[in-house]
Design a protein around this nucleic acid. Structure first.
Lengths: 360, 360
DNA sequence: TACCCTCTAGAAAGCGCTTGCTACAGCTCT
DNA sequence: AGAGCTGTAGCAAGCGCTTTCTAGAGGGTA
């Protein structure tokens, strides 16, 4: 049988209530008594029963972090940063006050799974939930998400969005009220500056390898791209110069071959993110073209490996770590939410070797 | 107030016991009754109280996956695969039987945090724990881990090691018995084959950028490397040709500069993993040397980006996804443990463009 | 018709903790 | 010296489920 609070109490010759209070540190206990209790805890190797504790206290110390793809450093960096803030600094004992169990849940980009995880976290009476990454723009899913988040908020769970725009405003109950804070990346602005950079270099025929359709991230980056083109008066059938696909290397590879097949005169390829850009580079090279002499290639996110690509990838840096950490602090109540609950996180254009003026 | 089982029972005009049985599906309930209950659940938007359920049933549906660095795809791939097996296929409702909440916990490589997470999971009465990645070879930590795992096992938590060698055998109670299965990568063999490949190409002066000391992964890969050298009769002060550092790009960069400073005649650099290799490549290039003409560079793991390095990285492929998935199945009891609870997972040498015969 | 199954459903006893309230010892204050 | 604090500790009532045991209904068998 596992050791219970009562066993510790018996050993320390106090009541269970006192043991509980020593462990929670939320009630005055005489130093000598505390000492005795802690010794008993150690001697018996007692570990609190989490479910019982959560049930009685009607709260839990679980904090969920939802990510679209755990194998993608884009999410890993944000999640890791958030987790650091939530779980406390390295070396903390796990017995301290305010310690939370930060866990990351991998939705695989599936809206269904996203909802499932939220339900499971609701079941566990999670203290907070951090949802990272772009959202699916399907009306049914948005409605379901809004309802689910509202219920979570009702139950006292703090909801923070990180790298995701706030919920669209809808019926009163589905308004953004259930979300403590939304930290949105400036994908539109980043996309625009990136394409402006290419335009400044002299490019006029630019292919775009977009992310999956119906995702906010995809749409915003693409909008920024097209806004830049429009502002520069670049005409052309943009739909023909755009191919959608998942955020994977092979998608970048396939899409780039397709784009260069459609229009061999392209002088630049903009990819949905760095991973996709890597695939694009591979495709360009395979066609016997040089980067950046024949074709410039650009990515987005500035993941760690991007600077090591050859040539180094021109991309848009997103402060993933800082954003994740901030989301973590918000979830822990260690930081005040931005005014209106919404903050836009800026992005930086990183100009590197993979982009250059087009030939002649 | 949130909706409780009793509310649902009242609405469906049955007893709470019946509702519980419908939800758990572990007791015969007449079809019409079940129908009525499920309708009530839907109408009230009822979500089970996890802590209460776990308390009463003395089990929980939490499964923890421990990783050393969540921002590293090495762990992300394994964790994602395991999670897929544990959480069920995409589209499952979360209400189905056998559904578990797979969560990943980021230890950041800190032994302290590793233990903390295990305690927290023990608190939650986790159904299973998957521990990924190499272990720290500190006697005190090994003892603490063994004791902790034994307690987890006692409490009915299944423990699976993935990409980590079995616990060293010690006192009876700390024997491997508490671990359901250990899936260990053949780091030694992979390291040996990699170096054999370089030796076959003709290299005799090989620098080694090792991982952090006191880690099983580091030691095994290095042992493989040295075994190959010894077998080929290559002499030399190997300690001088080895530099330790974390599994990061900058470590690879710094260590490589140091190695080439110590011995400018090196014709090859073997890195602890692909990320480190990327840093090594950057350093080599910065010194005005070409890869592979002047210096060959090799990595380990075959992470997705490695094939896109220029030149593509010669490395050792580890079946991360398959191993993670298998660990997940073992944790779920969907697969029988290997004989003796220990399985060694093979590795494949991937010969690519970053290695070539030395000059002259 | 009487008896014994088989099915379903309910009553109720916890699961191990938290916390509001009560108790009382030792002081301070008047 | 009596009243009123302050500081500690215990009592006991739940928290919302699960599950054992009990009970009644319907039906087959002798």
């Amino acid at each position: 049988m596992t050791v219970t609070l009562a066993d510790v109490a018996a050993r320390a010759r106090v009541s269970p209530a006192t043991v509980s209070r020593v462990l929670n540190g939320n009630y005055p206990v005489a130093a000598t008594t505390r000492e005795r209790v802690l010794r008993a805890v150690d001697e018996l190797d007692y570990v609190l029963n989490g479910p019982a504790s959560s049930l009685a206290a009607a709260t839990s110390d679980l904090v969920g972090i939802l990510v679209n793809d755990i194998a993608d450093p884009f999410f890993g960096i944000m999640a890791g940063a958030a987790q650091t803030e939530i779980s406390g600094p390295e070396g903390s004992s796990g017995r301290a006050r305010g310690e939370k169990l930060a866990v990351v849940c991998n939705t695989g980009g599936s809206p269904q799974r996203e909802l499932t995880y939220l339900t499971l976290l609701q079941r566990q009476r999670a203290a907070a939930v951090v949802i990272t990454g772009g959202a699916l723009e399907d009306p049914a899913h948005i409605t379901a998400m809004s309802a689910k988040l509202a219920r979570l908020a009702d139950a006292g769970t703090k909801v923070v969005l990180c790298g995701r725009p706030p919920l669209p405003e809808g019926a009163p109950e589905t308004r953004n009220g259930s979300v403590l804070a939304a930290l949105a990346f400036d994908n539109r602005g980043g996309g625009r500056r990136l394409t402006e950079h290419l335009l400044t270099l002299g490019h006029r025929s630019i292919g775009y390898v977009a992310g999956p359709t119906e995702r906010t991230t995809t749409r915003h980056r693409l909008e920024g791209h097209r806004a830049a083109l429009a502002a520069a008066g670049v005409a052309g059938d943009q739909d023909r110069l755009t191919v959608h696909g998942p955020y994977t290397r092979s998608s970048g590879y396939d899409a780039t071959r397709e784009l260069l097949r459609r229009d061999p005169g392209l002088t630049a390829i903009v990819a949905a993110n760095d991973t996709v850009a890597l695939g694009a580079c591979a495709a360009v090279r395979e066609l016997g073209l040089r980067i950046p002499e024949d074709v410039s290639v650009a990515g987005f996110d500035d993941l760690p490996f991007s600077v090591d690509a050859v040539p180094a990838l021109t991309t848009v840096r997103l402060p993933l770590f800082a954003a994740g950490a901030r989301a973590g602090r918000l979830a822990m109540g260690k930081e005040d939410p931005p005014p209106g609950g919404i903050a836009t996180i800026g992005s930086d254009l990183m100009t590197r070797g993979s982009t250059a003026p087009p030939r002649g």
